[in-house]
C-alpha cells in the first residue's frame, strides 16, 4: 500500500547518511512531485549491510525543478531532474 500517489508534492527528509545512501545530498529538504510509482523492494539501507530479505517499501520517482535544487542554476526554468526514493525518505510537503 503506497502512502503517496502520482501528483503528490513531497519533501525529502534530511536524515544523516551513514556510510551509504541512495538519497543524493542535493535533494535533502527539497520539494518535488511524485511522477511514478515503483514496486516494493528491500530498502537500500538494509541491502547495503547484507540484510537481503530486509524491510520492503514502495519506491517513488520524484521530479524536481532544477532551480529548486541548485541556487545558481543557469539553465531554463523548465528544466527538471527525476530521481528515486524509498517511502521512508519522503513526507508530505507542508
Amino acid at each position: 500500500m503506497s502512502r503517496f500517489k502520482i501528483g503528490d508534492r513531497v519533501t525529502v527528509r534530511d536524515i544523516p547518511p551513514l556510510f551509504h545512501t541512495r538519497t543524493q545530498g542535493y535533494t535533502r529538504g527539497r520539494t518535488g512531485t511524485v511522477v511514478a510509482l515503483r514496486p516494493e523492494w528491500v530498502i537500500p539501507e538494509d541491502e547495503a549491510w547484507g540484510r537481503y530479505e530486509g524491510r520492503r517499501e514502495p519506491f517513488y520517482i520524484v521530479r524536481f525543478n532544477q532551480r529548486d535544487l541548485w541556487p545558481d542554476y543557469g539553465g531554463a526554468a523548465l528544466d527538471t531532474l527525476e530521481t528515486e526514493f524509498s517511502e521512508r525518505w519522503l513526507e508530505p510537503a507542508s
Binding site: P16, F19, H20, Q24, G25, Y26
Partner: peptide, 13 residues
C-alpha cells in the same frame, strides 16, 4: 564531522 560523514559516491553538485 558532518562533512566527514558525507558519503563518497554522492558527488552531485
Amino acid at each position: 564531522a558532518e562533512a566527514l560523514l558525507h558519503v563518497v559516491h554522492d558527488v552531485g553538485g
